[in-house]
Nucleic acid binder design. Sequence first.
DNA 1: TCCTCTATTTGTCATTTGACATAGCGCGGG
DNA 2: CCCGCGCTATGTCAAATGACAAATAGAGGA
Lengths: 247, 247
Amino acid sequence: MAEKLRAVPCVKCPMRRLPIFKPNTAEEIAFIERLRIEQVGVPAGASIVREGQVKPPLYSLFAGWAFRYKTLTDGRRQILNFLLPGDLIGFQAHMLGDAAHGVDALTDVVLCHHARDKIWTLYKNYPELAFDVTWLTAHEEGVIDDALVSVGRRSALESVAMLLIHLYKRAHALGLTEGNELDLPVSQQHMADALGLSLVHTNKTLRRLQKLGLFKLDRQRFTLLNRGAMERLADYFEKPLDARPLL
Amino acid sequence: MAEKLRAVPCVKCPMRRLPIFKPNTAEEIAFIERLRIEQVGVPAGASIVREGQVKPPLYSLFAGWAFRYKTLTDGRRQILNFLLPGDLIGFQAHMLGDAAHGVDALTDVVLCHHARDKIWTLYKNYPELAFDVTWLTAHEEGVIDDALVSVGRRSALESVAMLLIHLYKRAHALGLTEGNELDLPVSQQHMADALGLSLVHTNKTLRRLQKLGLFKLDRQRFTLLNRGAMERLADYFEKPLDARPLL
DNA sequence: TCCTCTATTTGTCATTTGACATAGCGCGGG
DNA sequence: CCCGCGCTATGTCAAATGACAAATAGAGGA
C-alpha cells in the first residue's frame, strides 16, 4: 500500500519557500535530510497509521491531505483534525509509546519517513529543532482545543462555518487556494465525523449555509463567497498565522 | 490575588515519591530548582491565566485542581481539560506567543512559577528535560483527543461516565483517592462546560447514573461503586498510566 | 454506452438535549 | 438564629439533531 519514491532533497523542498515556514540554517537542513529515511507515497483512502499500532513510524506530510481519528468499539468515529503538508504524523505516538489514534490519507499523499532512533540525536545536538518539535506539538494541541470548542459549544451551523473557514485559512497559507477557491478533498461524512454531527444533518447545514450565500461547494470545489460573514458566524478571528517550523 | 509562599525544595518535592512520576538525576533536579522563581498560592475560583494574556507566566501545578477553558464572545464556555498536580500551565502559550485559553483554579492552588527565559537553557543543556517537556505536551494533546471523542461521539450518559472515570484514574495515580472515594472539586456547571452539555441535562444524567448504581456523588464526595460498568459504558479501557515526567 | 458504486440531497418522524421555571438544600455572614 | 446565595434537583415544553427511507447525481469500470 505504500510506495517508495525518489526523494526531493530537503534543501530543494518547495515548502521551504513558503513564507508560512520559518527558515532553517544549512546545517539544520542537512540534519533533517539525514533524519529522513525515504519518501513514500500512499494512495487516497489508505491507512497511514492504524489505531493502536505499536511504535508507528515517524512521518511528516510532504504533499496531500490526511486526517487523524479515533473510533469507539461500536464503530462511531471522531475525526480529531485534518493534516496538511508540513504537519507531523506519529510524534505523539512516538513520545507515548503507541498510536492512540489512526491516520488515513484523504488524497494521494507523499510522506517523509523519519528515523525514530535519530530523534534523540535531534534533542541532543539540535536544541533549536527540538524546540521546533515541541512548538509543533503545542500548536497541534491548540488546533484541537479549537475543535473541542466547536463540537462542544457551537451550533451545527456555526461548527460547519468554523471548520470550513479554518481549513480555508490553512490551505491558503500553503498556497493551495486559487483566488477564493480551493480543492477540498473532504466528504460530508468526514465533516460530520469531525464535527460530531450526523451525515444527514451535516448535509442540511451545508445547504443552509450555501443558501445564505456564505460559500459554494460543488464536487469538492469550495468557493469562499463571504469571508466576513463566515468569521462572524463562527466567532473565529485569528491573527495571521505565525511562521511555523518545518521538519 | 496571588500570594508568595515559602517554597518546598524540589529534591524534597513529595510528588517525586509517587510511582507515577519518572525519577530525575540530582543534576536535573538542581536545574529544575534554579528554573523555578518562586511558589505562589492562588485561591479557589481565581484566574491563573487569562484568555488572550500576552506572554503569560510559566507554571507547573504543585497542589490543587485547576482547569483550562476557552469562551466564545457571547459567553459560552468550553472547558478543555482539568489540571492536576504535576501538570504544566502556560507552556503552550509560551511556545505560541500568547494564551489562547484561560486557566482558573478550582480549589486553592499552589503553583511553581518558572523562569520563561531559562527554557531555552533547558533545551540547550538538558535535552532529557526538553524531551520531557515535549512528552508532557504530547500527553496533554492525547487527553484532549479523548475529550473530543466524548463530546463529539458519546451520548450524555457515556460522556459523563467517561469524565468521572477519567478524573478518578488521574486522581488515583496521584494518591488523591481514599479507598474508592475522592474529593471532586468540580461543580455540575464545570462538568457541563467540559462535556458540551447544559447544566440541567448534566444534572439529570448524573442522577440517572447514580440510580444505575455506578457511583455516588454527594457534596463533591465521589464514590466509585461499579468501575467495570463505568468503563464499559464509557468504552474507555486504558492501560495503567505510564510514568510521566515531572518538572 | 451501460452499469454499479458511492456521495449527496431531501422528506418525515423520533430522540436527545436545551430552555425555562421553580423548589430544595447547605453553607457562611450578620 | 435567620437570611441570602450558590449549587443541586425536577417538571414541562421547545428546539436541535439523529434515524430511516428513498431519490438523484457523478465517477469509474466492463
